[in-house]
Design a protein around this nucleic acid. Structure first.
Lengths: 255, 255
DNA sequence: TTGCCATAGTTAACGGCGTTCATTCTCCTA
DNA sequence: TAGGAGAATGAACGCCGTTAACTATGGCAA
């Protein structure tokens, strides 16, 4: 691991000198870098994660495969960088939806959930790469989660903040405190390391419970694991979403 | 697709003649067949889905790769057959847990959910193969879900039956009927094709809602998508499980 | 202006992969 | 006992990631 290139960053004697004044070399380099990732994504979309190959990328770019090693240490490193970009893209989509949803936390939650589903359904291959079964090579990416600014943590932040705002406004129902203390409080170090030590246990519960429901439903739809049950997963999603936010608005579930 | 071997079945002029009297040839064939799948599973477990290769299997068996084409039409067909076996194994584990849980539907649900999680956590690679991102090649396997005896449908059956029994015993709370009629009733043809036309809408809802929660939580744990949040996913699982069955026992969620 | 050298790119090669084809061997049966 | 079906082989094709040695080039320092 003595290599100098890990996806970006220019190896060079003097480096980039002044900020906001990239040299010609640097511009060419970043241009090639993003072209590689764009081509990788195109392959991902058309043929799945396994279709991403250095040779195919190079062929499409009019290059030879070994040239890509000037930009990435390995195919895995390239895929990892692509996964990071996709995480950021998804985060921005979700955050934008939140900002467009007004001030009501419940409306914000619904907007974020819908944006998440829509992006996922529209980009199944990308979803599989960042939120599906971790391929060997993506594993390393998952491991580095102690970082406070890990894309995964960053992605969860707007959800967390909204649920926190909601809790401050009204104390929605939760499982018994005793159960949360016993089953949850002792195991929240990772979450609190990323989102602040003071996050209330009720917020942590609502976040984890809600996120796992959202993730389960969406990934079953994206992976076609619902096809045997339901012909319109979107309608099921809407129902579950209303049922979920109903918890917070105190709306009864009784028929 | 004019090939005769699709995983089992002996191509031959006379075939297997009398039942329960397999010829020597047949015995050797099925023995080799299962040895191939066993080796494939070993590779799956140690190196992930991509590590399954005909050449590695053959090497380990003291054979050459083309010989495997006597037993499977392609690598994809082999993986598909393996996935079918794993589905059956998981189904049996879950069914066994149900039968060991006594007569109470709620106890049965908890036992099945725990069995599902335990198998999944103990066999992450197998879980990824059958319940994770569908690789190209597994897609075909997912498509054939119109079959009433598809392994996926078969796997869901004990869950469905238990929730049905529960509904017959006590009418647990559900979302408003109007919402279920609108969002669910019109899209349940696939489920009813597999599990009977007469399944009540409340049972379908509870099944889908519960299964997606279970699947979401377990797959996040198996895929390490919870590592940044919680250090003991098992405790979170227990809490969610209690919270879920609490819906059915009328237990309040208020702290 | 000249000369240097880091950088970007090339070709060739290695080993591994799925798959096909022609061929050989072996066992069962008619 | 002869023949044929089935099992397995070796060689080959075209992919793949990766490494190593090599060449061309553009920008900076003397």
């Amino acid at each position: 691991m003595n290599a100098v290139n890990y996806g970006n960053g220019v190896p060079g004697s003097q480096g980039s000198s002044r900020l906001s004044a990239p040299t010609r070399r640097e511009r060419l380099r970043t241009s090639t870098l993003t072209e590689i990732k764009d081509e990788a994504r195109r392959l991902l979309v058309t043929g799945g994660p396994d279709a991403i190959s250095l040779r195919a990328i190079a062929r499409e770019m009019g290059m030879t495969a070994p040239a890509i090693y000037r930009y990435f240490d390995s195919l895995d490193a390239l895929v990892e960088a692509l996964a990071g970009d996709l995480y950021i893209e998804l985060s921005e989509v979700v955050s934008a939806a939140k900002h467009d949803a007004g001030d009501d936390p419940v409306a914000q939650i619904m907007a974020m959930a819908r944006a998440f589903r829509e992006w996922s359904v529209a980009h199944p291959a990308e979803f599989a790469l960042i939120l599906g079964s971790p391929l060997p090579g993506i594993v390393a990416f998952q491991e580095s989660c102690d970082d406070e600014h890990h894309p995964g943590v960053e992605f969860g932040r707007p959800f967390m903040e909204t649920i926190n705002a909601l809790w401050l406004r009204e104390q929605y129902p939760t499982p018994p405190r005793s159960m949360m203390e016993e089953r949850l409080a002792a195991h929240l170090e990772p979450l609190r390391a990323g989102h602040g030590e003071e996050v209330p246990i009720e917020v942590a519960w609502a976040f984890l419970s809600g996120w796992s429901r959202l993730y389960g439903l969406v990934s079953m739809e994206v992976f076609h694991h619902l096809r045997w049950a339901v012909s319109d997963p979107g309608a099921l999603f809407e129902m579950e979403l209303h049922s979920f936010v109903g918890q917070f608005t105190g709306q009864s579930d009784k028929s």
